[in-house]
Amino acid sequence: MIGAGQTSPSGAPLLRARGVSKQFRVGNSILPGGNTVVHAVDNVSLDVWRGETLGLVGESGCGKSTLGRCLVRLYEITAGRIEFEGVDISVAKTRALRPIRQRMQMVFQDPYASLNPRRRVADLLAEPLKVHGKRSRAEIKERVAELMRLVELQPDHLNRFPHEFSGGQRQRIGIARAIALEPSLVVADEPVSALDVSIQAQIVNLFADLQERLGLTYVFIAHDLSVVRQVSTRTAVMYLGSIVESGPTEEIFQSPRHPYSEALISAVPSADLDRTNRRERIVLQGDVPSPINPPSGCRFHPRCRYATERCKVERPKLAEIEPGRLVACHHPVGM
């Protein structure tokens, strides 16, 4: 388990997001109302505490990658506020943002697309070091070699190009680049989903190892629940751009409170044959609604087996139902 024993919230969170929304305009109409708007992230509030790993799960297209990119301000958010280490990064200018960028980094999903194919590994890893601060050539060289050791790659592969590496090795390069500036927060956007299962475990272990050594905080985005269960101390479940439930990982996996999390978790194959309280597998009806035209009331109500009239009209707020557990539902499961 990663970061066990570091969950106790003390002081201010490392990252605090309040009411974050991100809308994409589709189409290029200059007429008012001529554009359709995709509500990729809709009014999300979350805290990330120092030293923890926050797992962000949800179906593909639920906006978790967009949220991740908003959190490190790769995307400009449409509404809301994101504070990182006490600084509001959602309004900071590019120049003011640069020192903050050193402290928060991103690991991308696709290790093939996230490395410039025309640059050597040494060059890729030296890039953040060249851009930030004044380091001598020798210092950069030394640091790059150290990074290669940290992510368990051979230092003599430094002169190679990305295409000469396997997917897992490329992801190690991506991780090395992300930790080059010793950030406090790393947002990992589905870092293992493009990899073979055998390599997934290695990369997950590398993440755990680096967290222990460097005291990193992770936001770990994934759609693979078993991966999230393994790596994260806390988990937030996203549905259609909003967080529907968050809380300590084990509690969510043992007793999900939101009907969507319940269905999601029931789909994870269990190796525990003796379990007395084995849950039935809940198959959700219908498809994920379009974020262009989301349903009224609770976004989940068309697919929810507990939905009532109230759910169609009134949108439930994310509320703390137990200490540390937030659920956005009028009828939380088992309560």
């Binding site: 490190v72 991103m106 696709d110 697309a113 996230s114 490395l115 410039n116 953040p128 851009v131």
Partner: peptide
């Protein structure tokens, strides 16, 4: 592309 996004994220 993701590698340009990565560069933006690095503060390049």
């Amino acid at each position: 592309s993701e590698f340009v996004l990565a560069a933006v994220g690095l503060g390049v």
